[in-house]
Design a protein around this nucleic acid. Sequence first.
DNA 1: TTGACATATGCCTATATAGGAATATATTAA
DNA 2: TTAATATATTCCTATATAGGCATATGTCAA
Lengths: 108, 108
Amino acid sequence: MARAATTSDAFNAVAEPRRRDILNYLAMQERSVSEIVDAMEMEQPSVSKHLKVLKGVGLVEVRRDGRQMLYKVNALAIRPLHEWTSTFERLWKHQLLRIKERAEARTT
Amino acid sequence: MARAATTSDAFNAVAEPRRRDILNYLAMQERSVSEIVDAMEMEQPSVSKHLKVLKGVGLVEVRRDGRQMLYKVNALAIRPLHEWTSTFERLWKHQLLRIKERAEARTT
DNA sequence: TTGACATATGCCTATATAGGAATATATTAA
DNA sequence: TTAATATATTCCTATATAGGCATATGTCAA
């Protein structure tokens, strides 16, 4: 079997760096496709395709404004990723604590 | 061009559900490959390959113990994902607040 | 209606897998 | 040394893109 589809879930969708770039850009405010194209320095069809994937997994929402399509982030769709990573927070804090302890042991 | 390599970074590595399963399992404690195979109900070569990818991006660490290889999570490698998602936390809290406000407005 | 502007979609190609099967490598016990 | 156990690697295949290019669709202005 091949790799999982990027459209399958938010984890796959944000695995693509350009899509994270787009989400970062949209985090500031709602933007039209052409604004994204200018900011990202990507081809317009490429941006439209990435936006389609992001929309497919609910990471962005769109509304039409005349000839323009205005996209914005749906941050709630990112929360599951945040929660998954949070389950490891206890572990890395423990790691950092041990690193700190070792550093102090050396200085003492 | 094709899709980015899963070995390129942690974002790509955790995009694969089976690899997240493995990380979740290892979060509890260090495990040998065969323990992972039994727990995940996957073929051994498949597990070894996923572990190789995880190791490649620093998400797990290994040590040998006789004939066994013991893998454990390197939680610090997950922190960048957590931090990236955190940049959207303000936004989804705002969303939730608005949802709550609307709900209250209806009941009032 | 026609032309221009803003986006989306279709087509094609190169590439990177995941999984299955078979096999190689490493380590320990007899 | 040899057999057995534990993992890793190789080979092969089906599949899912991302990006480039051309083109279709949608909307507004004249």
